[in-house]
Simulated assay, not measured.
Amino acid sequence: MREASFEFLKKLVEAPSPSGYEAPAQRVFRSYIDGFAQVTTDVMGNVYGFIQGTGEERLKVMLVGHSDEIGLQVRYLDDHGFLYFSAIGGVDPHITPGLRVRVHTESGAINGVVGKKPIHLIEPKERDSVIKLDAQYIDIGATSKQEAAALVRVGDAITFADSLERLQGDRCTSRGFDDKAGSFVVAEVLRKVSELPHPLAVDLYGVSSVQEEVGLRGGTTSCYNVRPDVGICVEVDFATDQPDVDKKHNGEVGLGKGPILPRGPNINHALFDILSRTAGEESIPVQYTGIARATGTDANVMQISRGGVATALVKLPLRYMHTPVETLSLADLEAAADLIVAALARMGNRDSFKPV
């Protein structure tokens, strides 16, 4: 991966963006694509990059990856200055005790830790039980409610403190890869298309959407605004090459083996065929899974927007989803961007996506 792209990825995932509080990450996305796309933002906070194509009756193609991450929100300040919190999105209460966090206040981010009773003080029969999120609390070092209230307000967003770090080879770990890795791929597709020697025969919209983790909201509104003929959602998916995940349930998917092309009722067959055939013709590695239902992604709402949209998913293998240590392969991100760019040049006309 080129250095400028990696620096963009690092800035993007490290920018705080719990659902409803995505502005810092969206500013990073907007700044990056501003040099090679026409950029707009809507009232929801979705950011759109547009590159006009050439030719008559050209398709309108929309790419989307969501910028929001799971997180926490301040709910209550007790008399001793401890902060109680609620989850934003699917936060696992198993993992939060003992974590370092960042509370994003009006005056800037402050450090905190999720408190945890020492094991020595826990009754043996209680040691295997999970502490409910509403019983957990954050210690920012304040000694009173007044001191805490001078720093923090109810409703302030909280993120895990973990930042992007390299592991071995091209593997990286960070919080927020779900789905800022998808937003990254969307931005890279826009960049690569802008660098092509000739314009494509499609009008291309690349969207970094918001509030996916709390109801696919940005995907719904952005697709309504764009009115695409074709939609491709770039998301993460469960890697099954870790010891404790069942391949029989989630399919055989590994890091570094290319993006994933799912099949199922959420996927337009003709668009799937274009992506799959392109991968073969361009020697881009891909993996396949089946999703026999509506997917829990922006592809779901894209497909049923207005009168219907020919929709596909390009997914990125991810280990440890919805934890502070999500892990992926940079090669999979690059392969996903290359696949989408190559597929854009092979799009047919509107009628070619109709099943009968």
Score class of each variant (00 low, 15 high):
F160Q: 02
S144M: 01
K132C: 09
Q168L: 11
I122E: 02
I138K: 00
E147G: 05
I131P: 06
I158G: 03
F177A: 03
K116M: 15
F177P: 00
G176L: 06
K180R: 14
E147R: 09
V154Q: 15
G176N: 11
Q168M: 11
L121K: 01
A148G: 05
L133T: 02
E165T: 13
G176F: 04
K180C: 08
D179F: 05
E147S: 06
H120D: 07
A161F: 11
T143H: 12
S163M: 06
R166P: 07
L167Y: 07
R175V: 13
K116R: 15
D162P: 02
S183Y: 02
P124M: 05
R153H: 15
S174M: 09
D178H: 05
A142R: 08
K117T: 14
K132A: 14
E123R: 07
Q146V: 07
T173P: 06
P124T: 09
T143Y: 04
V152M: 11
A149E: 12
D178E: 10
K132G: 12
V130H: 04
L151N: 05
A135F: 14
K145Q: 14
A135G: 02
K125R: 09
F184L: 09
I140T: 14
Y137S: 15
T159L: 05
I131E: 15
G169Y: 03
L151C: 01
S129M: 13
Y137R: 12
K145H: 13
V130S: 02
L164Q: 01
C172W: 05
V130T: 11
A149S: 15
K145N: 13
I122W: 03
K180P: 01
A150M: 06
K132N: 11
I119P: 02
D128K: 11
S183P: 07
G155I: 05
K132V: 10
L133Q: 00
G141M: 13
T143V: 07
V185K: 03
S174K: 08
Y137D: 10
T159P: 07
C172I: 15
Q136I: 12
D156C: 04
R166K: 14
E126H: 09
V186T: 07
Y137M: 08
L121S: 00
F177T: 03
T173Y: 08
D128C: 02
D156L: 04
D134A: 12
V185C: 07
I138M: 01
D128S: 15
D134W: 10
R166G: 12
T159W: 11
E126D: 13
E165F: 13
D128V: 00
Q146E: 15
A187C: 09
T159C: 05
A135V: 01
A150S: 14
V186N: 01
R127W: 02
L151R: 14
T159S: 09
V152P: 10
P118D: 09
E165S: 15
D162Q: 10
V186C: 00
L151D: 06
F184I: 03
L133W: 01
K116P: 08
A148Q: 03
D139M: 08
E126P: 00
L133N: 04
D178N: 11
L164I: 03
V152L: 11
